[in-house]
Amino acid sequence: VAAEDPAANPFTAKTLDEVLKLINATDSKPSTDIQLKAPEIAENGAVVPLTVSSTLAGITGISIVVSNNPTPLAATFTIPEGTSADVSTRIKMAKTSEVIALVQTKDGLFSAKQEVKVTIGGCGG
């Protein structure tokens, strides 16, 4: 990633399409072998815990993209040999959005999605 050239930096790209183009992820296959663990409703939009894990073979990298964020790409992880495809971090979410986990393997790019709702809260039983 050339952070110096804003046009080429996927982390400052403003749309999902731009991000996917810049990280070569326009073409991913949905996979049930990817577990994207995220709260259905965020407790705090400023701190949304995410875990991506996968049992796919030959994983080399994982990316997390938040469709409706002002800068959709949140993180990319390089997975060296010996490190599990099982990473956790916490992200900001401006509003309700689909979160996409992209998993790069030697056999191609796979993905899983989940909606995370950001709500104003209150009320209860």
């Binding site: 938040v66 959709p72 993180a75 010996g82 990473v87 992200i91």
Partner: peptide
């Protein structure tokens, strides 16, 4: 064992 790149969307 781990290298990760982040944008401003990662939490404080």
């Amino acid at each position: 064992v781990m290298k990760t790149s982040w944008g401003g969307s990662v939490s404080k």
